[in-house]
Design a protein around this nucleic acid. Structure first.
Length: 388
DNA sequence: AATGAACCCAACCGCAATACC
DNA sequence: TGGTATTGCGGTTGGGTTCAT
């Protein structure tokens, strides 16, 4: 027996809320609270179903809701939490005071997700998008040029699951690790790599094949994607904090040799380390706070003060710029664009968009976002001469 | 200026989990 | 303990707004 949809009863209104309805709901909840959503609309004199009232209240009318655009801090928090929690919007919202799950979900889908895609980052896995590398063509060309009787290599298509259109996740992980470490060794960002796919495909496929040949010699071992690659920290060692500089809002890290280093984060790395080291795997936030990128931090603030999000000074400067921009907008509202929701009520439902049409806001955030996916380990590591 | 496309976000839908009887 | 009501949540939709041509 299916349940009757809550709004199917005749006479119940649907669609956008009017200011009068909002006021009725606010007045009622302020007087009586919201104990029973089912009976609330009738008692409040609203021709709505309880579900609609609950949504309107929790997503829009609640007094503690923070409206307006997301700050850089909020945005980076969303990205970080999403890399670990996935589409658990309510869990993410619980860590962002004043923001609703619906608001975060919308913001993710309309802004962050698209930005990550433009950057060549898979918004689901938070890793470089492997589909852009056209794995099948990589493998096809490699096998065409490789006549080795090696049975495992000849069975490679079976290994990666091409026959059933499912890629072996271990191989994907390996490929991702390779891209990351390759970008480090080449001193290039993933975007650079993605723009130079042809050049890297051959190198990429050779790495996979070398790895498989290694496995063929050591069949007793399960595939360890990291075994053929130097650990991330070894590659990045040698970059000292004092060599961190900034040009045009982007931090640049330098190897002692003078080469520029751009580090790209891997959420898999973060979560893998978390799964291996977190003492309380059920407490996700504790793991986030204590095991960011596999290093122990006493707080999120301490974590943020290090390189993952950019330098603390730089973040402060961006914050000041943002506040300055907001002050200008407050002083000269005619220069901003006034946006109203479909159901204008009061200041709660009307906000200023500080996007000024020249793309500055978007560019700033993209720049910041790309910065977000770079970090450094050097503060914590000894210099490894092998990578000097 | 007109118009179609793209964007944005409040609201809805339906399922799952939980509470209650 | 099982059935029903309620609440919570994530995915999707619809319509207003903005942008591009």
């Amino acid at each position: 027996m299916g349940r009757t949809p809550c709004c199917e009863k005749e006479g119940l209104k649907k669609g956008p809320w009017t200011p009068e309805e909002d006021q009725k709901l606010i007045d009622y909840i302020q007087k009586h609270g919201y104990g029973n959503w089912r009976t609330l609309p009738k008692n409040a004199g609203l021709q709505r179903c309880g579900k609609s009232c609950r949504l309107r209240w929790t997503n829009y009318l609640r007094p503690d809701i923070k409206r307006g655009r997301f700050s850089f801090e909020e945005e980076e928090t969303i990205i970080q939490l999403h890399s670990i929690l996935g589409n658990k919007w309510s869990a993410i919202a619980a860590r962002l005071p004043g923001r609703t799950d619906n608001e975060i979900k919308n913001y993710w889908n309309t802004h962050i997700r698209k930005r990550l895609l433009r950057m060549g980052i898979d918004p689901v896995t938070h890793n470089p998008r492997l589909d852009l590398l056209d794995l099948s063509s990589i493998l096809g060309s490699s096998f065409y040029n490789n006549n080795s009787p090696n049975s495992q290599i000849n069975n490679f298509s079976r290994l990666i699951g091409i026959h059933n259109s499912t890629i072996n996740p271990e191989v994907l992980r390996f490929a991702s690790s390779f891209i990351t470490s390759n970008s480090l060794s080449q001193h290039h960002t993933p975007n650079f790599l993605l723009q130079n796919v042809d050049q890297n495909q051959e190198q990429y496929s050779q790495m996979i094949i070398s790895h498989l040949q290694l496995q063929e010699q050591q069949p007793q071992h399960q595939i360890d994607p990291s075994s053929a690659l130097p650990p991330l920290h070894e590659v990045s060692a040698g970059c000292s904090p004092s060599t961190t500089t900034s040009y045009g809002g982007e931090p640049h890290y330098y190897h002692s040799s003078g080469h520029q280093l751009l580090f790209q984060s891997s959420s898999n790395f973060t979560t893998d380390f978390y799964s291996q080291n977190c003492q309380h795997p059920n407490d996700e936030m504790a793991s986030i706070n204590n095991n960011m990128n596999g290093f122990n931090y006493s707080s999120l603030e301490e974590f943020q003060s290090y390189g993952f999000y950019g330098s603390h000074e730089e973040r402060e400067r961006e914050r000041e710029q943002e506040q300055f921009h907001e002050q200008i907008m407050e002083a000269s509202p005619e220069t901003s664009t006034l946006n109203s929701s479909s159901t204008p009520l009061n200041s709660n439902s009307t906000y200023f968009s500080t996007t000024n049409g020249n793309g500055t806001d978007q560019d700033d955030r993209e720049s910041y976002c790309s910065q977000f996916f770079k970090f450094e380990f050097s503060d914590f590591l000894d210099v490894n001469p092998a990578f000097m």
